[in-house]
């Protein structure tokens, strides 16, 4: 009987003391956290990808609450819907943003870009890039070791074994930008998804002179400038022997795609061309909405 009594009393005493200590500690060391941070974090996707530029979803939530404005803040994974919910919680206005997608700007597949050497080091682009210009004659193009694939948390990029190039699955890609950071050659770019997912871009980042590029790759941009001339919207610039299409100025007319002698300009998600493109872009332009955000495809 005594034994039980002693056990009950001693355990009870320990419990009591612990309770007091815990109570004091919880009052004394309590940290006030804005309850809205938790609420905002709840609506975020919890992918913790860091695509927003903050350390994880809770970091982003804290930044949103503290900033008092959602200017320049975007959760690339959740996109506009999530940002609107965040805005509702905080009583702020959601800042409009376009959905983006990762675009691989290299088309130097095995058949277009002959391999001259064999890389025998660790299969990491970062290390291959530090070793030399790569297995092909092009020192700017994709190295094909798949750093972008391992950087993607969403499984949106995979290597195509036939071309040796990465391919982005548009539906899964959240435009978090992890692959952009992972690519040592800065080939991947986040571009606006475009109307009906239609995009026109230069699929090359080679800055060598035309003759050098042509020798290394059949589909490299040689900086001839034909696309610049044909573009009616000043969307294309030529710098360091490389053309670049500004997605905000491009009207998706696809003239440059036809003009490019190398086939370096790529248009995706367009319906097949009619045998002859008769549609005059100028006519279509008249019906085009004034807003710069809206894009129109003349061949529609």
């Amino acid at each position: 009987m005594d034994l039980i009594l002693v056990a009950v009393i001693s355990l009870g005493a320990i419990g009591l003391v612990s309770a007091v200590v815990l109570f004091v500690a919880s009052k004394k060391f309590a940290v006030y956290e804005d309850p809205r941070i938790g609420k905002v974090a709840e609506v975020l996707p919890q992918a913790n990808c860091g695509g927003c530029g903050y350390p994880g979803c809770s970091g982003f939530a804290e930044a949103c609450v503290k900033a008092g404005s959602l200017e320049g803040k975007l959760c690339p994974v959740g996109g506009q819907p999530v940002m609107e919910r965040v805005a509702a919680i905080l009583g702020l206005d959601a800042v409009a943003s376009e959905p983006k997608v990762a675009v691989v700007r290299c088309n130097g597949s095995c058949e277009h870009r002959p391999r001259m050497t064999r890389y025998d080091g660790v299969k990491l682009c970062a290390i291959a890039n530090a070793t030399y210009g790569g297995e092909t004659g092009c020192t700017f193009g994709c190295l094909g070791c798949g750093d972008c694939v391992s950087a993607c948390q969403f499984g949106a990029i995979r290597m195509n074994p036939e071309t040796g190039l990465p391919e982005v699955d548009e539906d899964i890609c959240t435009a978090c930008g992890a692959c952009v950071k992972a690519c040592p050659r800065h080939i991947i770019e986040l571009r606006p998804k475009g109307k009906k997912n239609r995009r026109v871009y230069v699929s090359c980042v080679n800055k060598d002179k035309g003759a050098v590029t042509r020798k290394a790759c059949e589909v490299g941009c040689i900086g001839c400038g034909k696309c610049v001339k044909v573009c009616e919207f000043d969307a294309i610039t030529l710098e360091n022997n490389l053309a670049y299409i500004d997605p905000n100025k491009c009207r998706l007319c696809r003239k440059c795609e036809q003009e490019c002698p190398q086939g370096a300009i790529i248009a995706v998600n367009f319906p097949p061309r009619k045998p002859k493109t008769e549609a005059a872009p100028t006519e279509q332009l008249a019906t085009r909405p004034a807003s710069g955000e809206e894009k129109q495809n003349p061949n529609e």
Partner: peptide, 10 residues
């Protein structure tokens, strides 16, 4: 180009 040179770091 059967005889490709091998490239790796030292």
């Amino acid at each position: 180009m059967a005889n490709k040179l091998i490239v790796s770091l030292s």
